[in-house]
Design a protein around this nucleic acid. Structure first.
Lengths: 144, 144
DNA sequence: TTTTTGTTTTAGGTTTCCCTAAACCCTCGT
DNA sequence: ACGAGGGTTTAGGGAAACCTAAAACAAAAA
Protein backbone atom coordinates (compact mmCIF):
# COMPACT_ATOMS: atom_id res chain seq x y z
CA UNK A 1 0.00 0.00 0.00
CA UNK A 2 1.00 3.55 -0.63
CA UNK A 3 0.66 6.35 1.85
CA UNK A 4 1.01 10.07 2.17
CA UNK A 5 4.82 9.87 2.35
CA UNK A 6 5.04 8.55 -1.18
CA UNK A 7 2.84 11.30 -2.54
CA UNK A 8 4.74 14.04 -0.76
CA UNK A 9 8.03 12.60 -1.88
CA UNK A 10 6.91 12.36 -5.47
CA UNK A 11 5.86 15.98 -5.43
CA UNK A 12 9.11 17.00 -3.80
CA UNK A 13 11.24 15.20 -6.34
CA UNK A 14 9.23 16.57 -9.24
CA UNK A 15 9.56 20.02 -7.74
CA UNK A 16 13.34 19.73 -7.77
CA UNK A 17 13.27 19.20 -11.49
CA UNK A 18 10.56 21.57 -12.57
CA UNK A 19 10.96 24.27 -9.96
CA UNK A 20 8.90 25.11 -6.93
CA UNK A 21 6.38 27.16 -8.85
CA UNK A 22 5.35 24.56 -11.38
CA UNK A 23 2.24 22.66 -10.30
CA UNK A 24 2.49 18.91 -10.62
CA UNK A 25 -0.37 17.27 -12.47
CA UNK A 26 -2.33 14.35 -11.05
CA UNK A 27 -1.47 12.43 -14.15
CA UNK A 28 2.21 12.69 -13.42
CA UNK A 29 1.77 11.55 -9.84
CA UNK A 30 -0.55 8.74 -10.85
CA UNK A 31 2.03 7.56 -13.31
CA UNK A 32 4.92 7.81 -10.88
CA UNK A 33 3.14 5.85 -8.16
CA UNK A 34 1.34 3.45 -10.45
CA UNK A 35 -2.13 4.52 -9.44
CA UNK A 36 -5.20 5.59 -11.41
CA UNK A 37 -5.62 9.30 -12.17
CA UNK A 38 -8.69 9.59 -9.93
CA UNK A 39 -6.77 8.05 -7.06
CA UNK A 40 -4.04 10.63 -7.44
CA UNK A 41 -6.49 13.51 -7.69
CA UNK A 42 -8.33 12.52 -4.55
CA UNK A 43 -5.16 11.96 -2.62
CA UNK A 44 -3.79 15.33 -3.62
CA UNK A 45 -7.06 16.97 -2.63
CA UNK A 46 -6.77 15.13 0.65
CA UNK A 47 -3.27 16.45 1.24
CA UNK A 48 -4.60 19.89 0.42
CA UNK A 49 -7.22 19.51 3.13
CA UNK A 50 -4.44 18.62 5.53
CA UNK A 51 -2.53 21.73 4.61
CA UNK A 52 0.44 19.92 3.13
CA UNK A 53 -0.30 20.74 -0.46
CA UNK A 54 -2.01 23.47 -2.43
CA UNK A 55 -4.20 21.92 -5.05
CA UNK A 56 -5.71 23.89 -7.90
CA UNK A 57 -8.27 22.03 -9.98
CA UNK A 58 -7.13 21.39 -13.52
CA UNK A 59 -3.81 22.95 -12.57
CA UNK A 60 -2.01 20.61 -10.25
CA UNK A 61 -0.37 20.46 -6.85
CA UNK A 62 2.36 22.44 -5.18
CA UNK A 63 3.80 21.84 -1.74
CA UNK A 64 2.97 24.23 1.06
CA UNK A 65 5.76 25.24 3.41
CA UNK A 66 4.53 22.72 5.91
CA UNK A 67 4.33 20.06 3.25
CA UNK A 68 7.79 20.86 2.00
CA UNK A 69 9.23 20.56 5.47
CA UNK A 70 7.70 17.13 5.83
CA UNK A 71 8.82 16.15 2.34
CA UNK A 72 12.36 17.30 2.99
CA UNK A 73 12.62 15.01 5.94
CA UNK A 74 11.22 12.16 3.93
CA UNK A 75 13.63 12.98 1.16
CA UNK A 76 16.59 12.77 3.50
CA UNK A 77 15.50 9.32 4.56
CA UNK A 78 14.80 8.38 0.98
CA UNK A 79 18.27 9.42 -0.11
CA UNK A 80 19.90 7.54 2.73
CA UNK A 81 17.97 4.39 1.95
CA UNK A 82 18.57 4.69 -1.74
CA UNK A 83 22.30 5.23 -1.35
CA UNK A 84 22.55 2.40 1.14
CA UNK A 85 20.76 0.05 -1.20
CA UNK A 86 22.97 1.08 -4.08
CA UNK A 87 26.38 1.50 -2.47
CA UNK A 88 26.33 -1.10 0.25
CA UNK A 89 23.88 -3.68 -1.05
CA UNK A 90 24.35 -3.16 -4.76
CA UNK A 91 20.65 -3.25 -5.51
CA UNK A 92 19.62 -2.18 -9.03
CA UNK A 93 16.31 -0.55 -8.32
CA UNK A 94 17.48 1.17 -5.19
CA UNK A 95 15.12 4.06 -5.75
CA UNK A 96 12.02 1.88 -5.87
CA UNK A 97 13.29 0.02 -2.88
CA UNK A 98 13.82 3.24 -0.97
CA UNK A 99 10.41 4.55 -1.96
CA UNK A 100 8.84 1.38 -0.62
CA UNK A 101 10.65 1.66 2.68
CA UNK A 102 10.54 5.36 3.33
CA UNK A 103 7.34 5.40 5.32
CA UNK A 104 8.31 2.51 7.56
CA UNK A 105 11.77 3.48 8.71
CA UNK A 106 12.08 5.22 12.05
CA UNK A 107 14.07 8.43 12.35
CA UNK A 108 16.57 6.60 14.54
CA UNK A 109 17.29 3.97 11.93
CA UNK A 110 17.56 6.57 9.20
CA UNK A 111 19.99 8.62 11.20
CA UNK A 112 22.26 5.72 12.10
CA UNK A 113 22.11 4.37 8.61
CA UNK A 114 23.44 7.70 7.45
CA UNK A 115 26.26 7.44 9.97
CA UNK A 116 27.05 3.97 8.70
CA UNK A 117 27.22 5.27 5.15
CA UNK A 118 29.63 8.02 6.10
CA UNK A 119 31.81 5.65 8.03
CA UNK A 120 31.80 2.88 5.47
CA UNK A 121 32.90 5.03 2.56
CA UNK A 122 32.96 3.05 -0.65
CA UNK A 123 33.84 -0.43 0.48
CA UNK A 124 31.34 -2.89 -0.82
CA UNK A 125 32.26 -6.21 0.67
CA UNK A 126 33.01 -9.21 -1.47
CA UNK A 127 30.21 -11.08 0.21
CA UNK A 128 27.78 -8.61 -1.29
CA UNK A 129 29.32 -8.94 -4.68
CA UNK A 130 29.18 -12.68 -4.38
CA UNK A 131 25.50 -12.56 -3.57
CA UNK A 132 24.97 -10.19 -6.44
CA UNK A 133 26.67 -12.38 -9.00
CA UNK A 134 24.72 -15.33 -7.76
CA UNK A 135 21.48 -13.75 -8.83
CA UNK A 136 22.68 -11.83 -11.85
CA UNK A 137 26.12 -12.73 -13.14
CA UNK A 138 28.17 -9.82 -14.38
CA UNK A 139 30.20 -10.20 -17.59
CA UNK A 140 33.57 -9.68 -15.96
CA UNK A 141 33.42 -11.86 -12.91
CA UNK A 142 33.96 -15.59 -13.14
CA UNK A 143 30.76 -17.33 -12.15
CA UNK A 144 32.01 -19.83 -9.57
CA UNK B 1 -0.96 -0.54 9.39
CA UNK B 2 -0.28 -4.16 10.03
CA UNK B 3 -0.51 -6.89 7.45
CA UNK B 4 -0.57 -10.64 7.15
CA UNK B 5 3.22 -10.93 7.55
CA UNK B 6 3.09 -9.63 11.09
CA UNK B 7 0.38 -12.06 12.09
CA UNK B 8 2.16 -15.03 10.56
CA UNK B 9 5.40 -14.02 12.17
CA UNK B 10 3.80 -13.62 15.56
CA UNK B 11 2.32 -17.07 15.32
CA UNK B 12 5.61 -18.51 14.17
CA UNK B 13 7.55 -16.98 17.02
CA UNK B 14 4.97 -18.07 19.57
CA UNK B 15 5.08 -21.54 18.09
CA UNK B 16 8.80 -21.74 18.71
CA UNK B 17 8.23 -21.20 22.37
CA UNK B 18 5.11 -23.21 22.97
CA UNK B 19 5.57 -25.92 20.40
CA UNK B 20 3.88 -26.50 17.09
CA UNK B 21 0.86 -28.20 18.59
CA UNK B 22 -0.20 -25.48 20.99
CA UNK B 23 -2.85 -23.21 19.49
CA UNK B 24 -2.15 -19.52 19.90
CA UNK B 25 -5.00 -17.50 21.33
CA UNK B 26 -6.36 -14.36 19.66
CA UNK B 27 -5.71 -12.54 22.90
CA UNK B 28 -2.01 -13.30 22.72
CA UNK B 29 -1.78 -12.14 19.14
CA UNK B 30 -3.83 -9.02 19.84
CA UNK B 31 -1.51 -8.18 22.66
CA UNK B 32 1.65 -8.83 20.70
CA UNK B 33 0.56 -6.66 17.79
CA UNK B 34 -1.21 -4.03 19.83
CA UNK B 35 -4.62 -4.58 18.31
CA UNK B 36 -8.03 -5.25 19.78
CA UNK B 37 -9.05 -8.87 20.39
CA UNK B 38 -11.78 -8.74 17.74
CA UNK B 39 -9.26 -7.51 15.19
CA UNK B 40 -6.99 -10.44 15.92
CA UNK B 41 -9.81 -12.97 15.78
CA UNK B 42 -11.02 -11.75 12.42
CA UNK B 43 -7.57 -11.63 10.98
CA UNK B 44 -6.82 -15.17 12.11
CA UNK B 45 -10.09 -16.34 10.64
CA UNK B 46 -9.06 -14.60 7.47
CA UNK B 47 -5.72 -16.38 7.37
CA UNK B 48 -7.58 -19.62 7.94
CA UNK B 49 -9.71 -18.91 4.88
CA UNK B 50 -6.50 -18.41 2.93
CA UNK B 51 -5.17 -21.74 4.08
CA UNK B 52 -2.23 -20.33 6.00
CA UNK B 53 -3.62 -21.02 9.43
CA UNK B 54 -5.94 -23.50 11.08
CA UNK B 55 -8.27 -21.66 13.38
CA UNK B 56 -10.45 -23.38 15.92
CA UNK B 57 -13.04 -21.18 17.65
CA UNK B 58 -12.35 -20.68 21.33
CA UNK B 59 -9.17 -22.68 20.84
CA UNK B 60 -6.74 -20.63 18.86
CA UNK B 61 -4.61 -20.70 15.73
CA UNK B 62 -1.92 -23.03 14.45
CA UNK B 63 0.08 -22.62 11.28
CA UNK B 64 -0.61 -24.92 8.37
CA UNK B 65 2.37 -26.29 6.45
CA UNK B 66 1.84 -23.64 3.82
CA UNK B 67 1.59 -20.96 6.45
CA UNK B 68 4.70 -22.19 8.21
CA UNK B 69 6.68 -22.10 4.99
CA UNK B 70 5.67 -18.51 4.46
CA UNK B 71 6.38 -17.65 8.07
CA UNK B 72 9.79 -19.25 7.95
CA UNK B 73 10.80 -17.03 5.11
CA UNK B 74 9.45 -14.01 6.91
CA UNK B 75 11.31 -15.10 10.00
CA UNK B 76 14.61 -15.26 8.15
CA UNK B 77 14.11 -11.72 6.96
CA UNK B 78 12.98 -10.66 10.39
CA UNK B 79 16.09 -12.09 11.99
CA UNK B 80 18.35 -10.43 9.47
CA UNK B 81 16.70 -7.07 9.96
CA UNK B 82 16.69 -7.40 13.69
CA UNK B 83 20.34 -8.34 13.88
CA UNK B 84 21.29 -5.59 11.48
CA UNK B 85 19.44 -3.02 13.54
CA UNK B 86 21.04 -4.28 16.71
CA UNK B 87 24.59 -5.07 15.65
CA UNK B 88 25.25 -2.49 12.99
CA UNK B 89 22.93 0.34 13.91
CA UNK B 90 22.76 -0.19 17.63
CA UNK B 91 19.03 0.32 17.82
CA UNK B 92 17.39 -0.56 21.13
CA UNK B 93 14.06 -1.87 19.93
CA UNK B 94 15.50 -3.73 16.99
CA UNK B 95 12.79 -6.34 17.16
CA UNK B 96 9.96 -3.84 16.82
CA UNK B 97 11.88 -2.13 14.07
CA UNK B 98 12.32 -5.41 12.25
CA UNK B 99 8.69 -6.31 12.69
CA UNK B 100 7.70 -3.01 11.16
CA UNK B 101 9.95 -3.52 8.16
CA UNK B 102 9.53 -7.18 7.47
CA UNK B 103 6.67 -6.89 5.02
CA UNK B 104 8.30 -4.16 2.97
CA UNK B 105 11.76 -5.52 2.35
CA UNK B 106 12.37 -7.32 -0.91
CA UNK B 107 14.03 -10.73 -0.92
CA UNK B 108 17.03 -9.22 -2.68
CA UNK B 109 17.62 -6.65 0.02
CA UNK B 110 17.18 -9.24 2.76
CA UNK B 111 19.65 -11.57 1.13
CA UNK B 112 22.33 -8.94 0.66
CA UNK B 113 21.82 -7.55 4.11
CA UNK B 114 22.57 -11.02 5.38
CA UNK B 115 25.78 -11.05 3.36
CA UNK B 116 26.72 -7.68 4.78
CA UNK B 117 26.17 -8.98 8.28
CA UNK B 118 28.40 -11.97 7.69
CA UNK B 119 31.35 -9.93 6.54
CA UNK B 120 30.88 -7.01 8.87
CA UNK B 121 32.22 -8.47 12.10
CA UNK B 122 34.43 -5.64 13.25
CA UNK B 123 33.27 -2.37 11.80
CA UNK B 124 30.49 -1.40 14.09
CA UNK B 125 29.41 2.11 14.77
CA UNK B 126 29.99 3.87 18.01
CA UNK B 127 26.25 3.84 18.42
CA UNK B 128 26.64 0.15 19.05
CA UNK B 129 27.91 0.15 22.58
CA UNK B 130 25.42 -2.27 24.00
CA UNK B 131 26.92 -5.49 25.26
CA UNK B 132 25.67 -8.14 22.92
CA UNK B 133 27.42 -11.05 24.52
CA UNK B 134 24.42 -12.52 26.26
CA UNK B 135 22.68 -14.53 23.60
CA UNK B 136 20.17 -17.27 23.68
CA UNK B 137 21.13 -20.53 21.99
CA UNK B 138 19.17 -20.27 18.79
CA UNK B 139 18.03 -23.67 17.50
CA UNK B 140 17.58 -22.42 13.97
CA UNK B 141 19.92 -22.89 11.08
CA UNK B 142 20.40 -19.66 9.10
CA UNK B 143 19.96 -21.09 5.67
CA UNK B 144 18.66 -18.80 2.98
C1' DT C 1 -24.75 -27.21 40.17
C1' DT C 2 -24.88 -22.57 39.73
C1' DT C 3 -22.44 -18.39 39.53
C1' DT C 4 -18.79 -15.61 38.41
C1' DT C 5 -15.01 -14.16 35.68
C1' DG C 6 -12.36 -13.49 31.86
C1' DT C 7 -11.90 -14.43 27.06
C1' DT C 8 -13.69 -14.81 22.52
C1' DT C 9 -16.93 -13.80 19.11
C1' DT C 10 -20.52 -11.34 16.61
C1' DA C 11 -22.66 -7.06 15.31
C1' DG C 12 -22.42 -2.73 13.57
C1' DG C 13 -19.78 1.03 12.03
C1' DT C 14 -15.73 3.98 10.55
C1' DT C 15 -11.71 5.17 7.87
C1' DT C 16 -8.53 4.81 4.24
C1' DC C 17 -7.33 3.80 -0.18
C1' DC C 18 -8.30 2.17 -4.44
C1' DC C 19 -10.98 1.22 -8.82
C1' DT C 20 -14.06 1.88 -13.26
C1' DA C 21 -17.27 4.54 -15.79
C1' DA C 22 -19.01 8.65 -16.98
C1' DA C 23 -19.16 13.62 -16.91
C1' DC C 24 -16.38 17.66 -17.25
C1' DC C 25 -13.06 21.12 -18.61
C1' DC C 26 -9.41 23.07 -21.20
C1' DT C 27 -6.78 23.57 -25.26
C1' DC C 28 -5.48 22.97 -29.84
C1' DG C 29 -6.33 22.33 -34.64
C1' DT C 30 -9.13 23.40 -38.27
C1' DA D 1 -15.27 30.02 -33.45
C1' DC D 2 -15.92 25.41 -32.45
C1' DG D 3 -15.50 20.69 -32.06
C1' DA D 4 -12.36 16.89 -30.93
C1' DG D 5 -9.12 14.70 -27.89
C1' DG D 6 -6.91 14.11 -23.82
C1' DG D 7 -6.28 14.88 -19.22
C1' DT D 8 -9.12 15.75 -14.85
C1' DT D 9 -12.82 15.29 -11.87
C1' DT D 10 -17.05 13.41 -9.92
C1' DA D 11 -19.96 9.51 -8.97
C1' DG D 12 -20.51 5.24 -7.20
C1' DG D 13 -18.57 1.19 -5.36
C1' DG D 14 -15.69 -2.16 -2.97
C1' DA D 15 -12.09 -4.26 -0.10
C1' DA D 16 -9.12 -4.22 3.89
C1' DA D 17 -8.29 -3.22 8.62
C1' DC D 18 -9.60 -1.54 12.65
C1' DC D 19 -12.66 -0.09 16.56
C1' DT D 20 -16.39 -0.31 20.52
C1' DA D 21 -20.25 -2.48 22.61
C1' DA D 22 -22.71 -6.32 23.49
C1' DA D 23 -23.61 -11.25 23.30
C1' DA D 24 -21.78 -16.02 23.76
C1' DC D 25 -18.86 -19.11 25.70
C1' DA D 26 -15.69 -22.01 28.71
C1' DA D 27 -13.74 -22.96 32.80
C1' DA D 28 -12.85 -22.21 37.43
C1' DA D 29 -14.90 -20.82 41.98
C1' DA D 30 -18.42 -21.06 45.20
Amino acid sequence: MIGAPQYLLTLYIAEREDGEETPISPGYVADALDRSPPAATERLQNLDAKGLVRYEPYEGATLTDEGRDAAEELYDTYRILSRFCRDVLGVDDHEDEAMQLVGNVSPTVAERLAATLLRGGDNRGEATEAAESASQPSPDSPAS
